[in-house]
Amino acid sequence: MGRIFLFGLALLLAGAFMAPSVLGSTLDDVRKRGELRCWVAPSLPGYAFPDKKGNWSGFEVDFCRAVAAAVGVKVKFDPSSPRDRFNSLALGSLDIMTHATWTISRDTRLSTDFVAVVFYDGQGFMVRKSLGVDSAKKLNNASVCVLTGTTTELNLADYFRSNGMKYRPVVFDNPIKALKAYDNNRCDVLTNDASGLAARKGLLKNPDENILLPEIISKEPLGIVVRHGDKQWADIVRWVHNAMIIAEEKGITQANVERMARTSKDPEVQRMLGKTGSVGKDLGLSSDWALNAIKAAGNYGENFARNLGKKSKIGLSRGLNRLWNKGGLIYAPPIR
């Protein structure tokens, strides 16, 4: 029956025996537990992918590691179906959720808040070369494998509707099943965030026989989400992200962060790394929060290069995800 029903039942049963309660401070809960619970995309190489021994690696995995290091706890990754993730977060069984497209309805209607965009993406289509299609405009009547509960499911409907085309959705609850069904030729098209398609292409039987169509049909700002109403926790997560961006701007890396903390003459770096000022204390953390975060995951650019960049297996270019002063959209407010 799936997690969604267990969740509903548990909620009803819990409801019978619990007095009305308000969730407490996430920071206190995480510290008490000694563990940060972080939702990551199930099996998405480059973003979150476990190796055979169960060691996780990926861009968003490393972001969660940075937050955990800033707080001073361990981290646990939850790769469950994307269908239930917003509810799990709203009810407090997750602390952070990654890889969710920021939309107005998710921000306002659901009991969750977006705190940062860590990756600017767009939705694309993957097809087999043998289909002889070079544009998404020629996909009339195609079967499309898509994931339930994603913005891509809705964008897909909008795109075909606005172009006066028909399509046949085959809707899966798990990205690996969708990929397998596409690989078995159940669908003509697989749709997802373009970077996600590029990342999963390597998992297909014959990766080189598949191409991404040139159309990018949506804006997919992949954000970090926390529970609505806990301002302190939202601040912590947002500023860990900002600290990683500022670190890239200032040339602070995983390797030199300790030395920079001691020797840097830049007042902003001194404030960020805890030599002066009280930003750590203001966040409710220790003064070396940013130092620990960068030591754990590196700066934004290092994290990108290690997991997604040209030299990694995924081979993405920075594109929109370059720093603001290099023609991209990645920008952090000052630490002051």
């Binding site: 969740f7 269908r83 509810n87 509960g149 099943k177």
Partner: peptide, 29 residues
Amino acid sequence: SLGVSVAYPELVAVGGTAISQSGRAIEII
């Protein structure tokens, strides 16, 4: 209701999609 596991759009599958798109878990369940 196991149809949800092989992408057959029966009640639980459609309900699951509707929950994640509308956020109305309690009502739909």
